[in-house]
């Protein structure tokens, strides 16, 4: 809600003095008009006393205040999709190095634990290679697991998640259940063409 000041100005007309000739000629005319009309004569008496016409008055400034309501957009949280290219690229890398998609797309129900275990080793080493090569990953909280940690009052809720009986305004003391992970550096391969990143692995044909 705001206050607006609106100014209205009335344009004043000016009474300009006449030169001698129109005055001389006009004086005869005024004589007969004065004689013929009582109403006119009465008006002229007013003018003779020095009264001013309404339009000669000083322009009046009229100030009025009006109230208006305007809507301002505050950044309200809206849901958005993250960059899909990055996700596709990561899947590509995991398939390339570790045959990750092959592994997940196949049902492992029919295979013995030993077989799955042997495959898991290869997939593990491949995935670990992708992770190490393209990301630097560090813990969020470097204290050792299950140790007592103190969280200050104004902590960052993105970095630390309080669980259990959470009440009061802190600082909070608790046990570190999981140190958390964060990416400190990302080194993804550069691509020359982002159009067909949805092809995670091309079909292979031996000729």
């Amino acid at each position: 809600m705001t206050q607006n000041t609106k100014t209205q100005k009335i344009t004043s007309q000016e009474v300009k003095p006449l030169s001698f000739v129109p005055r001389f000629i006009g004086a005869f005319g005024q004589f007969f008009k004065y004689m013929g009309s009582g109403d006119y004569a009465a008006r002229c008496q007013h003018a003779g006393k020095g009264d001013v016409f309404a339009f000669e008055a000083e322009p009046t400034v009229i100030t009025e205040t009006i109230e208006t309501i305007r809507e301002i957009e505050v950044a309200a949280p809206i849901l958005d999709t993250v960059n899909e290219d990055g996700a596709h690229q990561l899947l590509q890398l995991l398939q390339q190095e570790a045959r990750f998609i092959d592994f997940l797309q196949e049902s492992i129900d029919d295979y013995a634990d030993a077989d799955v275990g042997a495959a898991a080793r290869q997939i593990h080493s491949g995935c670990a290679k992708v992770l190490n090569q393209h990301f630097t990953i560090d813990v969020v909280n470097s204290a050792s697991e299950n140790s007592r940690v103190e969280i200050p009052a104004g902590y960052d809720a993105k970095q630390i998640k309080l669980e259990g009986r959470v009440e009061g305004s802190g600082p909070y003391a608790g046990t570190l259940i999981h140190p958390g992970w964060k990416v400190t550096d990302t080194r993804l391969p550069k691509v020359t063409n982002t159009e067909n990143l949805t092809i995670l692995a091309p079909a292979e044909v031996e000729v």
Partner: peptide
């Protein structure tokens, strides 16, 4: 490291490959 994908690695394997003309897109 893959068609049209470039990565920075500490080592350069000393291998040179001469691809077939249809094997890659020009942009690769």
């Amino acid at each position: 490291t893959a068609a049209g994908q470039i990565d920075e690695l500490p080592l350069l394997p000393s291998f040179v490959y001469f691809p077939h003309q249809t094997e890659f897109l020009d942009s690769d």
